[in-house]
């Protein structure tokens, strides 16, 4: 593995190696040493969580980071090409971790530079490190990745995390329930991928009544701005809010995941139940990113 650009590039073996390494880092079995290693965090699009998570991962391994956030203070404003910016940054650092609103930007970066590139989100395309930390959270709570029933709820059209997760879980024979307003449904190209792999999925418009047979419910935020008319948003909003009263008949092993930030799609009354797992999930992100960086830099 030279770069991490898309879940489509990873084999089952690659994923299991990453899961295994994350687990060993979490329990202290391996302690990667990144002293004198520098990660360039290039975030051309706002991010707090993912950026902090990578920053934390690097620093917990005694490594260091240089951070660029937004494009305001970069040479792009002076007319420098994207390729030149990347090649220059690559002279300073050992690994580039990059988020961009442009789809395919990380793939292109990996072609341009000789050091490893990690895609920390490219437009509505991929967010593989989020998918991997989601997988790590699933394996920790379910004890396995194979043959699980997974509900994906919220904005399935523009949410890159659900695209990456659906592709990743398909490798393990998951069955899906897609729960979203009709105009925010899972894109056809993802559904085509799943059909080609003989993965079963059903589509629903309501969360209520569709969660009792799930092992995992993955909730994402529906952005109000996606709706042309605010009244339309008000009408459907309630169908995508999870609260405690919906949980009495869920399975014993059921867990709720969310990539965060949460707005109001999971009521805070769910937080105290044994089904809430979104905050530990964020912590798992650090172990997973430690594993990704360590493997790409050949330190484990």
């Amino acid at each position: 593995m030279k770069n991490l650009i898309s879940m489509r590039d990873l084999s089952k073996e690659d994923i299991m190696r990453l899961m295994d390494t994350a687990a060993k880092i979490e329990n202290g079995e391996i302690v990667p040493d990144m002293q004198r290693k520098l990660a360039a965090l290039l975030f051309f699009e706002p991010s707090t969580r993912t950026m902090f998570s990578f920053d934390t991962a690097m620093k917990r391994m005694n490594g260091d980071t240089i951070i660029m956030s937004g494009t305001k203070n970069t040479s792009a404003k002076k007319g420098e090409t994207f390729a030149d910016t990347l090649q220059t940054i690559a002279q300073y650092s050992d690994i580039i971790i990059m988020r961009s609103p442009i789809e395919g930007a990380a793939r292109y970066a990996a072609e341009v530079v000789d050091i490893p590139v990690v895609n920390a989100g490219d437009g509505a395309n991929q967010h593989p490190t989020q998918a991997l930390l989601d997988l790590y959270s699933i394996i920790k709570t379910q004890g396995k990745l194979e043959n699980l029933k997974i509900g994906l709820a919220g904005d399935l059209r523009f949410g890159r995390t659900v695209h990456s997760l659906a592709q990743a879980m398909a490798v393990f024979g998951a069955e899906f329930k897609f729960i979203s307003p009709s105009f925010l449904q899972m894109p056809e190209y993802i559904k085509d991928d799943l059909t080609e792999q003989n993965i079963k999925f059903e589509e629903f418009k309501d969360m209520e009544g569709n969660i009792d047979d799930l092992d995992i419910l993955y909730v994402t935020r529906i952005q109000k701005e996606r709706f042309a008319d605010p009244e339309d948003y008000a009408k459907v909003k309630g169908s995508y809010v999870l609260n405690k009263t919906m949980l009495p008949n869920v399975k014993e092993n059921f867990k709720v995941l969310h990539p965060l930030p949460r707005v109001d799609e999971i009521h805070t009354d769910v937080d105290d139940t044994k089904f809430a797992y979104y905050f530990p999930q964020a912590k798992n992100g650090v172990y997973t990113r430690q594993a990704i960086i360590s493997i790409l830099l050949g330190e484990v």
Partner: peptide
């Protein structure tokens, strides 16, 4: 055809 694709914003 994707306007957000990098091939439509960089000369590649």
């Amino acid at each position: 055809p994707n306007p957000k694709c990098i091939t439509n914003s960089e000369d590649i």
